[in-house]
């Protein structure tokens, strides 16, 4: 299983990123917590449809689960259509987020929890 965690830097110690489409990096883990790869999310720079481009990049990297914060309406449709499980409620770091996921502390998401374009605003992070 490949688990992608939204990250503001290219490492597992980087702060976790709450926004989905505008997320700069994704750190991909296996289910044992080993880092498999780091994805530089080129979709974040899209003028429009960043969530869709980001989903495409995750699908191209065969991601099964994504851990993030806020997901817009088009992005959630794209993720669900691609069969990616979405969990929200990131911790302060990437590795902390993965720990929370393993402990079952994150919420599965099947509907959007953010308005479209909301990732374009000032960056906000949820710190538990």
């Amino acid at each position: 299983m490949r688990i992608a965690v939204g990250a503001s830097g290219p490492s597992k110690d980087a702060p976790a990123e709450e926004r989905f489409g505008r997320c700069a990096y994704f750190v991909v883990f296996d289910e044992n917590g080993n880092v498999l790869e780091t994805i530089n999310n080129e979709g974040a720079a899209s003028a429009e449809g960043a969530g869709i481009r980001t989903t495409q990049i995750l699908l191209d990297h065969n991601v099964n689960v994504v851990l993030t914060g806020r997901v817009g309406p088009k992005a959630i449709n794209a993720l669900l259509a691609g069969g990616v499980a979405v969990y929200t409620g990131v911790a302060d770091t990437v590795s902390g987020t993965l720990e929370n996921y393993k402990k079952g502390l994150m919420q599965p998401l099947a509907v959007p929890n953010a308005r479209q374009h909301s990732g374009k605003g000032p960056e906000k992070r949820v710190v538990k």
């Binding site: 979709g43 481009r53 699908l59 691609g82």
Partner: peptide, 18 residues
């Protein structure tokens, strides 16, 4: 250029609004 198409699993999904 507008991210209006997505290849998801066994289908291509279109986002006509984009």
């Amino acid at each position: 250029a507008f991210n209006a198409l997505l290849v998801a699993g066994e289908a291509v999904i279109t986002f006509p609004e984009l």
